[in-house]
Structure formats: C-alpha cells, structure tokens
Design a protein around this nucleic acid. Structure first.
Lengths: 93, 93
DNA sequence: TGAGGTTACGCCTATCGTAATAATG
DNA sequence: CATTATTACGATAGGCGTAACCTCA
C-alpha cells in the first residue's frame, strides 16, 4: 500500500470516475486504474463496481474510505503540527 | 512522504537507534537513515537529535509521532475493516 | 459506436544493499 | 578507538505516460 494509492482511491470514490479523478490529480488515467487494482489485490477485496458510466463504491470500499481519509488527514495534521512548530524549537537542549 | 518513511520514523523514535530500528524492520541501516533525512527535509524541520549513542526525538518529532502513529493505525484499521468484510459483500446490487 | 476502464511497453526515477567514510564521546 | 550515523555507488524495481485495446449499453 502507498499514499498515492490512498489519494487515488479517495479521488475516484469522490468522483465516481477514473478519468475525472485522474484529471483532478493531474495524472493520466492508467496510473490511477493500475494503483486501484493493486490496492484491491492487496486487500483481497473489490472496492469498486465497474459500470459503463464509471466506478461505484462497493460496501467494502465504503468501509475503507473512512480509514483512508483518516490516514491522509492524520498526515496533513502531522505536517501542520511540525510546520507550526517553527520558532518553537528553542528547547533543543 | 511515504508510508515507509512513517514506519521508519516510528521505529527509530521507539528504538532511539537507527541500527536497532533497521534490524526490527528487516532492512539495512542506510535506507532508514536516508528516509529519515528525506522526511526531515520535506517537513523543513529536524525531528531527531543525533548523538553518538543514537537518536533522540526533538519536540517537533514528538508532535509528529502522534500523527504518524495515527495514520499507520488508520491504515491497519482500514485493512481490517475490509478484510472482515469478506462474506458480507452480499449487497453488491 | 462511443464512453470509459484496462493492458502493453519503454523510459525514468527512486530505493535498496554493500562498502567506504565521517563524527563524537 | 569503538560505536553510530551518513555518503557513494552500482543494481533493481516500481511508477509514469503514450498508445493500443477491450467491454458494454
């Protein structure tokens, strides 16, 4: 699993469309499609249903989405916590 | 930032020692050392103090540790949530 | 037959491990 | 001078983009 996979997964879940997700991510479609499949392979579970109209989340995908967002959010918070720390690093001892 | 960097960071924070962290991660020392530095570079902030005895967390590192663990934990929970879903995927519709 | 997703393939970047090097108490 | 971290370097693997292909209503 990789952070890119989580980002791609969330984007596709939100767009319901690999093409739009890729555009939003400023990446070509194939990487998104591949990483999505790799993620499903690793989890041993399909996360999306493929339809001629796009991608629809399956129940396992819905469940995973919650934690994918949580993980990405934690990382952003961590980044912010460290960045805000600039100037507070007096006590290096 | 990568998940490997987060794993490496947490291991080093817990071990206080790149060598032991690497052994625990079943990886050579250099990758751990490099990824740690890359992480610090990306965050624009030192996370550890280097001593001849090993590595000690600096305040920004302490702050980041909380969120790094949260992110990794969320991923594990996500994995579990999907895995447990096996057999519950009746309503694919 | 058109909209959308996937596979093939070549290139490029990133990461690893071994070995050598630096730093510090 | 021993312990620990870092840098050099060659080899490998992973990921991207373009282009071609498949599928289904």
């Amino acid at each position: 699993m990789s952070l890119a996979q989580l980002h791609y997964f969330v984007a596709v879940a939100e767009e319901g469309h690999v093409g739009r997700a890729a555009a939003r991510l400023r990446v070509a479609q194939p990487p998104v499609s591949r990483q999505l499949r790799a993620l499903e392979d690793e989890l041993g579970q399909a996360l999306f249903e493929r339809t001629p109209r796009g991608m629809r989340l399956l129940p396992p995908g819905e469940r995973f989405l919650v934690y994918a967002r949580a993980a990405l959010s934690a990382i952003e918070q961590g980044r912010a916590a460290v960045t805000e720390a600039r100037g507070t690093r007096g006590n290096v001892q």
